[in-house]
Each structure stands twice: as C-alpha cells, then as structure tokens.
Amino acid sequence: MNLKGTLPALILNTLAGEPKHGYRIAQEIKAKSKGVLDFKEGSLYPALHGLENDGFIESYREMFEGRPRRYYRLTEHGIKQLEQERDQWQQLSGAVSLILEGP
C-alpha cells in the first residue's frame, strides 16, 4: 500500500516509546501493519532527515555490539506534533468512515 505523505507520522509514532535506529523503525512499521504498509527502505532516511530538519526528532551516534549506530528520538516539539497528527487522523478517518459506511 502506498504510504505517500503518511510516512513522517508513522515514524513519529514508532519513535514514541524509545529511541530507535533506522532499520528498526522500518521493520516496526512493516510489522505493526502486518505487512500492509510496505515501502522501499531507501525512502525512510530522507523522511527521517526532514523530521530532523523540522526539529521533530534528533539523532545521536552510539556503539552497539562493537558497531556504531545512529539512533533517533522524539523532541518535545515532535511529541506535540505526534499528538496533532493523531488528532487529525482520528478526524479524517472518522469522516471517511461515516461516508463509506453510510447508507
């Protein structure tokens, strides 16, 4: 399924719990949607960088099992943005459901 426009919101939601690295973010989005939301993993990093430029997430490097990894975490600004995205999605999906499931 095409993720156009929704990938940043999905990334923010995936980072809500704890800091994660790029590969894990991609796998979590695919796993949580049971494979319905599939995307090319090369497109994840521009989205991450865009969110970082907007100040919604920040990144840092840390060693893991002898290998350096770049982790991403939500900022205060990002937490507020995630709440807004959730509210907007609730409204949108509710409105679409009313139309599609209506008489």
Binding site: K40, G42, P46
Partner: peptide, 17 residues
Amino acid sequence: SRLGSPRRARRGYRREY
C-alpha cells in the same frame, strides 16, 4: 531490493539533504 531504486532514493535525498 528492499532499499529500492537508488535513483528514486536520490530524488528524496536531494529534497532533504
């Protein structure tokens, strides 16, 4: 294959980096 087309990825990179 999962990373996708490098040309397509380049378009995204040029937009953000």
